[in-house]
Amino acid sequence: MKTFIVPENIAISDSGFIFLPSTGETFTLNELGKQIFKLLQAKKTIEEISSEILKEYDIDTLTLERDIEDFILRLKSLNLVTQV
């Protein structure tokens, strides 16, 4: 089971805007990106996040799995999450 850690002092605003105090970088997330990011902050696992989204959105499991995979890859490359 994969767990991801979001750097501590990051805040995400309601508009999906992230400011990374350590580097001064800013990021913008769309609605679902924001939701997933908040769930990651709340230390949810990928499985928990997936099942929550599947309940809420009109999407199939495989597509979602692929999109979350891609999203987390992006977050990692932007240093917004680290994997443990």
Binding site: S15, T26, T28
Partner: peptide, 11 residues
């Protein structure tokens, strides 16, 4: 403040 940048970036 950063909030100004946030507002213009997202809105």
């Amino acid at each position: 403040d950063i909030s100004v940048l946030e507002k213009i970036t997202t809105k």
